[in-house]
Design a protein around this nucleic acid. Structure first.
Lengths: 232, 232
DNA sequence: GATTGTCTCGTACGCTGTACGAGACAATCT
DNA sequence: AGATTGTCTCGTACAGCGTACGAGACAATC
């Protein structure tokens, strides 16, 4: 069980001193950079999914050689880490939220979180395999601060945060699973045809058929917040 | 966006008639079978993780040629589907649960679910990318039946089920992320060293440091069930 | 004896991530 | 001025991947 990424580092990050360098005029392609690589990676992921992202394709789209990427980036894992975190940046709440409305603020943070992930369906598949990035951490920080300010007891705080986080992540993953299986409608239809035999209760409640995901997310969140408010 | 798996099928599943075949005495290696492939795949996944599972390695471990696998199995995706679902089989509640204790039963189902996934950490990484298998569906069916029997209104039923499911899946994924980043303790320590600067509230609450995951899961579940009970 | 169905597997192909090292170019030093 | 150093690009090469293809082995059936 060795840590794969512990040793590797891009040459760039190994440099000891940073000397000034003349800026190149943007003739033809702009110069390669960590930022340009990440945004292009996100484009590619949006267009082709996780399996569609290849170092070669990424380089092609950037108009550079494959190995040039490795100057700016440790390896493919690094690209994926950066892409995932870049998509999770939070722009802050709108002004419509009054300061004492802690519930509204929490709901907004979480719905925005979920929306960010749904805009980039590949993000769900990436989540379980990487560590928490800075943007994720600052969202957690914000959540923590809001709840704490709302009077949630310290003893309940961490549990509350993780529960809310679980709600977002679980909802995202469920959604990803369903989008996936809707690709091949034929197989899905066939499976649902036999649902009533094997799974009568599920069938009756139309659990897998109704797809008001937004509403379910919001109402489930209310359950959670109600339970939380009881203990405030 | 074409469905990758719609066309592929193992040769075996295409056969039209099943004729009786003399059973081979288990001399040397037992004959290849779908079941043997799946259990060996799970062993390999447990030992080496998702990236460790290769068709070649799987065949080696089974003492067969690589391409022999493809008689029993469509492709690697198929193996992963089967491995994931096989790990999620549910053996039913113990006798200690009385019939009218719906909360206890729900808690047991969910804790067992989570435990199954934690026993096989690779399962979390696989989840977002495959459809719901039969074992998952029957767990959902059981959950649905329990809640419905406990008097949860039909209008709330689906929301409740998804919220509980979200809790399990989210918790599993969080845990997977953390186990991952604990592989390279060095990087984690370095990151945590700067936590108090960037994320003071998180630091104070020790959100990332305390790791009573079992307790947090259970207490979060209580929040959810409390909120649910309010509406019963 | 010929045919068919079941099952195994060697070879080969196109694709992947990336190690290595040769350069191009600018800034700096002597 | 020439030499050196640091920054950045990239062609080649390699091991490993999933799997298409088709040649067989063996038993059951006609």
């Amino acid at each position: 069980m060795t840590a794969k990424r512990s040793g590797a580092q891009s040459k760039r990050s190994q440099r000891k001193s940073v000397s000034s360098q003349a800026e190149q005029a943007p003739r033809g392609e702009p110069p390669l950079s960590r930022e340009r690589i990440v945004t292009t990676a996100v484009e590619l992921l949006d267009a082709q999914g996780v399996d569609g992202l290849t170092m070669r394709r990424l380089a092609d789209r950037l108009g550079s050689g494959v190995m040039s990427l490795y100057w700016h980036v440790d390896n493919k894992e690094d690209v994926l880490d950066l892409a995932l975190d870049s998509v999770l940046a939070y722009r802050g709440p709108p002004q419509t939220v009054e300061p004492e409305d802690w519930r509204g603020e929490v709901v907004h943070v979480l719905e925005d979180w979920r929306a960010s992930m749904l805009r980039h369906p590949w993000a769900a598949a990436l989540l379980p395999r990487r560590a928490l990035g800075p943007n994720t951490l600052s969202r957690l920080e914000l959540l923590s601060k809001t709840l704490s300010g709302a009077g949630v007891a310290d003893a309940d705080l961490n549990v509350a945060i993780w529960s809310l986080w679980n709600h977002v992540m679980g909802a995202t993953i469920t959604r990803a699973s369903f989008d996936l299986s809707e690709d091949d409608r034929a197989a899905a239809q066939q499976r649902l045809a036999h649902l009533d035999e094997c799974y009568p209760t599920i069938e009756r409640s139309r659990l897998l058929l109704d797809d008001d995901w937004d509403g379910a997310f919001r109402e489930g969140l209310d359950f959670l917040l109600d339970g939380l408010a009881l203990r405030r």
